[in-house]
């Protein structure tokens, strides 16, 4: 019964996605003489753009800003689709957390919504930050809470109809990884001092001749860790969307509605899987950052 309802509601949301896909596919078919199988329309969907599409209701053209000259480089500061999605996810997060925080102002016993938020907050605090960083982690809690909820909301926001996943843009995940990189380095430097931190990167008790190699490996490691974070989140978030679009695209490649139940069924399955992945990826990004910070402030090899 519940499953049925869920299926229905997801079908509705999937339905609107399908509408979009239909509209797109028609456009693609028109421009490419009936060939929907080249997949360029999928890329058009998941990639960043300067328009918010609300097919069949129309579209909003986003303003172009720039290129602005920053540090001698021309930077295009346009508000793109993913930036808008990012802001909307952020606003949603702000509203949600304000509601939760207000519940605590009334009484120490949380309300219904605050209880749900509390589970996640306690999860981040007791299962991610404190085990990997110890008591010192309390200082970093606001950062990790913001990180976890921001990624979670961005991931989940992309599953809504007409929305797209901001974390499916490698620039967004890159920004998060850059912030994580600085948090890790600054935490280490604050703990051991500038020289002490970089000296502590190389394990002590190494034969002298491997020291240069170890130093290079460790310094490379500083950059590969956030790079892996960035790519992991981006790839996971975009993969699910591409699979969903591909499944829907099958209908148009085969050119028959008979394939639709199978496509929609599989798309629904992937959509539900995406819910799981959205949560897991938020968790993984957060716990890995926490572990890296933990390693930076506990350099006892």
């Amino acid at each position: 019964m519940i499953l049925g309802l869920m299926k229905d509601s997801t079908l509705v949301s999937r339905g609107s996605d399908t509408l979009r896909t239909v509209a797109d596919s028609v456009r693609a078919a028109a421009s490419q003489a009936g060939d929907a199988s080249n997949g360029s329309w999928i890329i058009g969907h998941v990639a960043d753009s300067h328009t918010l599409e609300f097919a069949p209701f129309g579209e909003i053209h986003l303003p172009h800003i720039g290129p602005v000259n920053i540090l001698g480089l021309p930077v295009d500061l346009s508000i793109t689709k993913h930036v808008v999605m990012l802001w909307m996810a952020g606003i949603l997060l702000l509203i949600a957390m304000r509601i939760a925080a207000r519940s605590y102002k009334k009484s120490l016993i949380p309300g219904k919504f605050a209880s749900v938020v509390e589970i996640l907050v306690l999860f981040v605090r007791d299962d991610i930050v404190l085990p990997s960083m110890g008591e010192k982690g309390k200082k970093f809690l606001p950062y990790f809470l913001t990180l976890f909820f921001f990624i979670l909301f961005s991931n989940l926001f992309g599953l809504l109809p007409y929305a797209s996943t901001p974390t499916g843009n490698i620039n967004v995940t890159a920004a998060l990884a850059i912030i994580a990189f600085f948090v890790i380095q600054i935490a280490g430097i604050m703990r051991y001092g500038l020289l002490g931190y970089f000296k502590g990167l190389v394990p002590s008790g190494m034969p002298t001749f491997v020291l240069p190699i170890m130093a290079i490996v460790e310094i490379l490691g500083l950059f590969t860790k956030p790079f892996a974070l960035c790519v992991r989140l981006f790839a996971n978030m975009i993969a699910g969307h591409i699979v969903i679009f591909s499944l829907i695209g099958l209908i148009f490649i085969f050119g028959t509605v008979l394939i639709a139940p199978i496509s929609v069924g599989f798309a629904l399955f992937i959509e539900v899987l995406e819910l799981l992945i959205a949560t897991i990826q938020a968790y993984i990004f957060t716990i890995l950052t926490a572990l890296f910070v933990g390693m930076a402030i506990h350099q006892d090899h």
């Binding site: 890329i43 998941v46 990639a47 960043d48 800003i65 720039g66 920053i70 480089l73 930077v75 295009d76 500061l77 346009s78 508000i79 793109t80 993913h82 930036v83 990012l86 802001w87 952020g90 997060l93 702000l94 606001p142 950062y143 913001t146 990180l147 921001f150 901001p166 843009n169 490698i170 620039n171 967004v172 890159a174 920004a175 998060l176 850059i178 912030i179 975009i238």
Partner: peptide, 20 residues
């Protein structure tokens, strides 16, 4: 799919910082 867009990086960083 993978296209460097410094504008988005800057916007994300600002958004994240403000949110934080």
């Amino acid at each position: 799919l993978v296209q460097l867009d410094p504008g988005v990086i800057i916007w994300t960083t600002l958004t994240f910082g403000l949110l934080l």
